[in-house]
Computed example of a mutant assay.
Amino acid sequence: MPATVAASLIRALLDYLQAQGLDRSRLLEHVGLEPTALVSPQRSIEAVYYERLLAEGMARLHNPLLGLEFGMAAEPARWGRLGFLLRHCATLGEALSYQARFAHLVNAIGEGRLLQRANDVVIEWHSSRRVMPAVIEEAFAAWLGFARWARGENESPQSVEFSHRAQGDPAIYRRFFNCEVRFDRDACRICFDPALLALPLRRGDSELTAHIRAEFDQSLRRAASLDTLQALNAWLQTQIGSPPPTLGEAAIALALNERTLQHRLQLENTTFRRSLDEARHTLALRHIADAGLCIGDISHRLGFSEQSAFQRAFKRWTGITPLAWRRRHCRRSAPAYAGG
């Protein structure tokens, strides 16, 4: 599944580039993104468009530090609903923990992991693929910029490390982060004093944050259940046969217990039995299109005990018999197998 970003992040980048003198419509046209895709701020857009916009902005403005500077200008609205949650947290530590937990709903190119070590607290950047430095620098600058905005103070980390080389004058990095900035390190991380976690934010509202956090928790549960359903459907299509796969076998294959699997399917308003039926339906249409397979062979492949049971199921799915479907939809008509 491709990485995504929220439309609100792309809109913020377009606003920033427009303020630098670039034409918004031409930028969208150049990267191949329709303006209508950005109407809903919470909509997920393939991250490649965000990266293309950053690259195009750097090229047109001749500015390799565009990612860093765009991050410096971050405001909570850039992160949509997540920004609204962060701005009302009680402490900086609470905001950072929510940011690490829910940031992928806004930017799934990589993730920031909040780690507590012996002498400091660290936010580390991790990604499953190679990421352009501008993306990482934007994220780091935005995290620090938000902390300063939310605190109303010019907080600074103890140090910042990037795994890539400096994209411009290192002094610019040092002035913004107000600490030592190292390049070509083993990972990308911001290190800061643990005491900063307890610092209060200006607009703390525990009731509001609890309400919004519940919304995000529900979104995460729904995303997990949808991923599980898709994985189950893919697995069923490779396992259907005689005898048909069971709920217990599916749970083991998906590394879940049976109760969790059933609960996630319920969240998608379905059941294991219905998923099995839908997988059989999908495979039945695929096999019927193969004129070299007789109806009896297909019935056996799908795990039906009798050919008549398959024919009844197929008529329930499509309204017609398997042979009638084949004659109507296949270019090359199959022989009139008995019992079709």
Rank of each mutant, 00 (worst) to 15 (best):
T282M: 08
D15Q: 06
A3R: 03
H263Q: 15
I288M: 02
L9A: 04
E51I: 11
R273G: 01
L96N: 02
Q158A: 04
S333H: 15
D169N: 14
G57T: 05
L236P: 02
Q237I: 13
R81A: 09
L85E: 01
E75I: 13
S225F: 07
D23K: 11
L115W: 12
E207A: 09
S275D: 02
T246R: 12
P64D: 11
A313Q: 05
E155P: 00
D169E: 13
C294E: 06
D193S: 07
R273E: 15
P41I: 14
S159N: 05
R26S: 09
L66C: 10
E56N: 05
S242Y: 15
A309E: 13
A223H: 08
L38M: 08
R24D: 05
L13W: 00
N63H: 11
A108T: 02
L65M: 14
R273I: 12
G340S: 08
F176G: 00
L86K: 09
T260Y: 07
L105S: 04
C188D: 04
P170Y: 12
S40V: 13
F177K: 08
R175E: 15
A336S: 06
A309K: 10
G57Y: 12
S44D: 10
S333K: 15
S156F: 01
C188E: 03
L9E: 10
A234M: 15
S44N: 11
G319Q: 09
L68T: 05
A234R: 15
L285E: 03
S156T: 15
G152T: 01
S127V: 06
E29F: 13
T228M: 06
T321V: 06
I136F: 01
H287F: 15
S97P: 03
L38N: 02
H164L: 07
I295C: 03
D186Q: 08
D186K: 12
S206Y: 12
A338C: 07
F310T: 01
R130I: 12
R185C: 10
E69N: 07
P170N: 04
I190D: 01
V121T: 12
A195H: 10
A198F: 02
I240A: 07
T271R: 02
R174Q: 15
R286N: 09
P76L: 12
G292A: 11
N269Q: 14
L247P: 00
R148E: 02
E249F: 08
L66K: 12
R151V: 06
P35H: 03
G67A: 12
R130C: 04
L85S: 02
H164W: 04
N257F: 07
Q20L: 03
R24H: 09
T271W: 00
R274I: 08
L267K: 01
E34L: 13
G204V: 09
M1L: 14
E306M: 12
R117S: 10
A291D: 07
V181M: 07
F146H: 06
A234I: 15
R11T: 08
E180M: 11
S206T: 15
